[in-house]
Amino acid sequence: MRIVCPFCGERELGEFTYLGDAKPMRPVAGASEDEVFDYVYLRDNVAGETSEYWYHGGGCRAWLKVTRNTLTHEISSVEAAAGAGAAKVGA
């Protein structure tokens, strides 16, 4: 598998580490135990397009949100995490 890092270009799988589902959002401070439990444990088992976090640790160390089809492994989009490349915020 190859992932097109928005910063580095197309790279081989071995440079990346998979984390998991990128859909759940970390609840804000003060959230209930149930909300945090859902965030940590509840996952959909999608046959089709999913978005997931990958870390380009063997490259530029950017966290990426990859949209991948679990049936075909086709990657339809790769976005950088909000905090990767934040020097341009406000520019």
Partner: peptide, 19 residues
């Protein structure tokens, strides 16, 4: 290595508003 990866996740994904 794993802590570095975790901290980068916190910085880039969870708390991108922090400088």
């Amino acid at each position: 290595g794993l802590v570095m990866q975790h901290l980068e996740f916190c910085r880039q994904v969870l708390f991108p508003e922090l400088d």
